[in-house]
């Protein structure tokens, strides 16, 4: 239900910095999302990624980093709800 992770990379700077630890909660059917939420999701071949939700529509969830070079939905398109595993609550 609760999971702690360590952020690796700079694509969400200044929201999250490389090496920072985050406190996350698991996604359930009743979990609601809104734009600006930070989520942890599974995306092959990258594995578990962390990005910010920029838009939600019928195609899925468009996730994006804050860095111009971030690998995100601008590269691989929107992600499905099922691939979102955790919502980030805060860093510590």
């Amino acid at each position: 239900m609760i999971r702690l992770f360590k952020v690796s990379g700079h694509s969400l700077f200044p929201l999250f910095q490389d090496g920072e630890r985050i406190f996350c909660v698991k996604i359930f059917n009743f979990t609601k999302f809104k734009t600006s939420n930070i989520v942890v999701f599974e995306k092959e071949p990258h594995g578990l990624m962390i990005k910010q939700i920029k838009a939600i529509d019928e195609k899925g969830y468009f996730v994006q980093g804050t860095d111009a070079f971030s690998i995100d939905s601008r590269d691989f398109g929107p992600i499905k709800r099922e691939s979102i595993k955790y919502k980030v609550l805060f860093k510590f």
Partner: peptide
């Protein structure tokens, strides 16, 4: 040890 989540940029590696 905490598992990592990737906030990577550019081509990985």
């Amino acid at each position: 040890k905490l598992d990592e989540v990737k906030a990577h940029c550019d081509v990985p590696c």
